Amino acid sequence: MTVISSNDSKENRVRTLEMGAMDFMAKPIDEELLVAYVSNRLAYKRELEQAIVIDELTQIYNRKFMESQIKLFIKHHQQNKEHFSIAIIDLDYFKKVNDTYGHLVGDEVLKGFASLVKELKGAEAIACRFGGEEFVILMPRTTKKEAFIFIEKLRTSMEKKIFTANGTSFHVTFSSGIAEATSTNLHPKKMLEEADQALYTAKQLGRNQTIIFDNIAAVEKRKVKIKIVVIDDVYIIRDLITNHFKHLEENEDYMIETLAYPDGISFLEANWYDPECKYIILLDWILPKMDGIEVLSKIREQHASSNVIVSMLTSRVGEEYVMKAFINGADDYIVKPFNVVEVSERIIRLIHQMFL
């Protein structure tokens, strides 16, 4: 509020400001000055409002704005029976991005995802940062099926997006849960709980997928398909590992298949990748024609650790080799000679940590 008065005394100005006015203008008022003053204050008001509702890092809406909009869309649904859906999105294994590449790179991933959402979403959809690596997308006049189509388009685009750090490339995926407004969930907390339950189911089923809340009961507990790939020019090592896993007891959460290649070129030229599977690759460092680090770099150009774990299998010891492996995208480092049982136990731990 600005007070305009012909009494331009110091006492009157002080009293005006003490009573809560933002500014004081003395009469008579110059018209040009008044126009400039109003324009300045309107611009300041817009900037202030933006700062209140916009997440500083990602430049999309924040949680406070999201909560106000959910209430508004629920009200519209109650009045006009307009469809309204929400999606909660969680970036898969984001902690590993921070741990591997640092928090500054993690921030770039968050900004990159937010930018992708803004690029792909419709004019009415509202993207919000829910907190950390979680996001909420509000979709007015959108059914759960329409929401699913959009979120899947976003998911596949994110899966292909390339991020870089320390001269290496990597990918990040996300899991998502969707809920649509119905007669039984017309409350912000209830809708968010339903979307969150669907998100939890997506994570339980292996991540990098979208689940609609209504479909949770119909979704069977699917076993995660895991392929263990051994790339080593020594036949005995390939045979030792593949035979060991062939004879493991069946597990209720996952099933394992083994593949083996004598060199990196034959592996890369093979049609080895199946998006329905998760992979653990045991990669020898010293290979003919193309060494293991080159193969690792080729893998990371296309596949993130959320789907493909790479463990260097090598006789090279020393901190410089370990660091080089991790910088180029390795997830684990196993030194030869090794005990196949110990390697097996290590792989099972990785499966539980990364895929279940």
Rank of each mutant, 00 (worst) to 15 (best):
F174L: 13
N251A: 09
I299F: 11
N62K: 05
F150A: 12
G329V: 11
D263H: 05
K153Y: 09
I178C: 04
E294P: 01
M22D: 15
L138S: 02
N307E: 07
Y101T: 07
G167S: 10
V343P: 00
F338S: 08
K81R: 14
M158D: 10
R300V: 07
F73W: 11
Y44L: 15
K298W: 08
E193V: 03
E133W: 08
V234Q: 11
T242C: 07
I52F: 13
V172E: 10
A123E: 15
N98K: 14
D214C: 03
V53Q: 05
T258P: 01
D284Y: 00
Q209P: 05
K71T: 14
L120W: 03
L268W: 05
A125C: 01
A43Q: 14
S115N: 07
I70L: 15
I286D: 14
V105W: 05
E220L: 06
M354P: 04
A217R: 09
L72H: 14
A304H: 12
V224H: 10
A218V: 04
S68F: 07
L154W: 08
E269T: 09
S85N: 06
I52A: 15
V224F: 03
A114S: 06
D92S: 11
L248C: 03
Q197R: 11
E180D: 02
Y44D: 13
S266T: 13
E47Q: 15
V53Y: 07
L104R: 10
E108H: 11
D55A: 04
K225H: 05
S9D: 10
D284A: 13
Y61I: 02
I70M: 15
I4E: 08
L116N: 03
E134H: 01
P275V: 05
A21P: 08
Y333W: 06
I226W: 00
M191G: 02
M323F: 13
D239G: 00
I126C: 02
S175M: 05
V310F: 02
D107I: 01
F326A: 08
Y321W: 03
F148Q: 12
L48T: 15
S297H: 13
